[in-house]
């Protein structure tokens, strides 16, 4: 059972509440799932750093009672990489938006994945640029509307899971805000995983994506997620080019490969250095 009643207050930075997120936004559910993961893993908050980029998801670090960095658009993984290398004992959690990770920061995203550095990326995918008021994102499905694709977009949507897998991420999962139990399960799995973990979570943006595309309010959008996602492996139901076109969810990869800070420690020690991962 999901731990609905657990006391997550110690994990949150109360002076920053309420959040900037709109009523009905899925991002609060994702942040809650991160807090739940920290609680389940019994992590010492002094050794956790939450980072974010720019956009709605980027505000996540403000709400955690940890050291935190709200960085620049798309480039949060560069900061996280430097931080993790400087202090490998930290648990580093990175909140990114779909624009953050797949547009302006796609270059950083693939290289962090390639290095397999021990970071946990939670990719909040709401299919649109929310903070700036509803522009087309690299995840906006073809033919869907945004303020910059007012007649329907003609670009195909990017698949974050495919990209992460291709780039070499060693823990790759996707779920939705409907999947209340899976969110903390996958995020905890990513945090425990000794390597680069990417958990994409499909989130609803009723304010822009929902309104511009007549998808209804949050409950309807969440229901849509439920109806248009299938567990990975059930290939017969997968179609990619419409809204969440029966998108596969689940854990796509979970494997151990050499992790960056550990490899660096080996290299340093072989050269007589005392770097420890």
């Amino acid at each position: 059972m999901p731990n609905v009643g657990n006391d997550l207050h110690p994990y949150l930075r109360h002076q920053m509440m309420p959040t900037v997120w709109c009523p009905g936004c899925g991002h609060g559910n994702i942040a809650r799932a991160i807090a739940t993961s920290l609680e389940r893993l019994e992590l010492d908050l002094g050794h956790v750093v939450v980072l974010g980029g720019i956009g709605c998801s980027g505000r996540t670090p403000f709400y955690f009672n940890t050291n935190a960095m709200h960085t620049t658009h798309g480039r949060v993984l560069a900061f996280a990489t430097g931080l993790k290398l400087a202090n490998p004992s930290l648990t580093v959690i990175v909140a990114m938006g779909d624009g953050d990770a797949l547009a302006i920061g796609a270059g950083h995203f693939i290289h962090a994945a390639r290095r397999n550095i021990d970071l946990t990326v939670v990719l909040y995918n709401n299919s649109i640029y929310g903070m700036t008021g509803g522009q087309q994102a690299p995840t906006t499905p073809r033919s869907f509307r945004s303020t910059t694709s007012p007649f329907g977009g003609i670009e195909p949507a990017f698949d974050a899971v495919d990209l992460a897998l291709a780039a070499g991420a060693t823990y790759v999962a996707r779920t939705t805000t409907f999947d209340f139990a899976e969110m903390p399960e996958y995020i905890s799995g990513g945090i425990r995983h000794p390597g680069f973990a990417m958990i994409e979570i499909l989130s609803q943006c009723p304010t822009y994506f929902g309104r511009l595309n007549q998808l209804g309010d949050a409950p309807e959008m969440i229901e849509y997620q439920r109806n248009h996602t299938v567990m990975a492996g059930d290939e017969s139901q997968i179609g990619r080019d419409d809204l969440l076109g029966n998108l596969p969810v689940g854990i796509f990869r979970q494997e151990i490969r050499p992790e960056y800070t550990h490899q660096y420690a080996e290299l340093s020690q072989a050269q007589g250095g005392d770097y420890r991962a």
Partner: peptide, 15 residues
């Protein structure tokens, strides 16, 4: 961009 981002992250990490 990433180079200076990593530098800033490392500085907050104590280097």
């Amino acid at each position: 961009l990433a180079a200076l981002g990593a530098v800033i992250g490392a500085t907050w990490g104590g280097m």
